[in-house]
């Protein structure tokens, strides 16, 4: 699908090797293995109900993961998204409680997300501060801010608008959770943009080689700035869905969420160094980790073990990837 990740057929030996050269295919095989294993070992794992539930749970990471992947591909990182999830619930719930309007609440949340994205983007792209530092900073600031504002207490959603609640438990045709529908639509749209719109390719170029991109006439800073804005806006969308699920704004919302997303994105073959990876890969990474944790829970394994196993898988996957690249580069 992407021109960028298709190597020329000539220098590749066998069909099998060629298939495994395609990151997405290898990931798909992994996903199928995970599904097969748990279908055989866990009762009701492979049921429509469980599958769609997991999809619904995965939709937060899928949505925010798009932004995370975009920022990675541009050669930067954004770890402020977990805190952003908690933060934007404040304007969302407060405005809805005051106005009884979902549209105004969502508008307020998006505006807030936009500002955060602009702050992150400005500090990284124009002020030239390292993106890990910048987003680490805004992560703490936002988390602290929410805590200062709410205290221990959650601010609950008193408006209880039907349309808002539908975001958490509504299902399209009574099967697919709306949150998953939103994630899939966004994935398809941004996936298309990354491969077929000049801006998408500019992101790859900037992450692939910043100096070359500049020589080709790209505004490197603007590209990065926009990636941070997209990332914050998508995290805002995820935050709105999360707020609908928990029915409140609270300071613990989305804790460690950024690391789940980063883990899935890296597992999906999106390189931290920039320029490499695809949204398909990221999505497969999210699904693998989500089904894995669902299945392990089905086996009765405690959460601690899930963490340990997830960690091992990520390191193994990245190590495998490294080895493959080294072989491909013949060194």
């Amino acid at each position: 699908m992407s021109l960028a990740s298709t190597a020329s057929a000539k220098d590749q030996p066998s069909l099998l090797a060629r298939l495994f050269a395609r990151q997405e295919l290898a990931l798909l095989v992994c996903l199928v293995l995970v599904l097969a294993f748990f279908s055989a070992t866990v009762e009701n794992f492979f049921s429509v109900r469980n599958m769609t539930n997991v999809l619904g749970q995965a939709s937060l990471a899928l949505t925010a993961g798009i932004g995370c992947a975009l920022v990675f591909i541009s050669g930067e990182v954004d770890i402020s998204i977990g805190s952003l999830l908690a933060t934007i619930a404040l304007p969302l719930i407060i405005i809805m409680n005051d106005t009884n309007s979902l549209a105004l609440g969502v508008g307020g949340a998006l505006l807030f997300g936009l500002i955060i994205g602009m702050v992150n983007g400005y500090l990284v792209a124009y002020a030239g501060i390292n993106s890990l530092i910048v987003t680490l900073g805004t992560m703490f600031i936002m988390r602290g801010g929410v805590y200062l504002y709410t205290g221990q207490r959650a601010i609950s959603d008193d408006a209880s608008l039907d349309s808002f609640i539908a975001l958490s438990d509504g299902r399209l045709f009574n099967i697919i959770p709306y949150s998953a529908v939103i994630a899939i639509v966004l994935l398809v749209a941004f996936g298309y943009m990354m491969q077929h719109w000049p801006f998408g390719r500019q992101i790859y170029a900037v992450g692939g080689n910043q100096e070359v991109a500049r020589l080709a006439g790209y505004d490197v800073r603007r590209v990065k700035f926009i990636c941070f804005i997209i990332s914050a806006l998508l995290a805002t969308v995820a935050g709105i869905i999360l707020a609908a699920r928990v029915g409140s704004a609270q300071h613990t919302a989305g804790l460690n969420f950024e690391f789940q997303v980063v883990a899935a994105t890296v597992l999906g073959g999106v390189s931290l160094a920039g320029g490499i990876g695809s949204l398909t890969g990221m999505a497969l990474g999210v699904l693998i980790l989500q089904f894995l944790s669902n299945g392990l829970r089905g086996l009765g394994l405690p959460t601690e073990w899930q963490l340990v196993i997830t960690g091992m898988i990520i390191i193994a996957a990245v190590a495998f990837d490294e080895a493959k690249h080294r072989r491909a580069n013949g060194g």
């Binding site: 021109l3 960028a4 020329s8 170029a205 692939g208 080689n209 070359v212 006439g217």
Partner: peptide, 18 residues
Amino acid sequence: IALISEFTVAENIFLEGY
């Protein structure tokens, strides 16, 4: 040499404007 190594030759040629 100023090319994006992950891109195909064709894409590099039109990097300046697709």
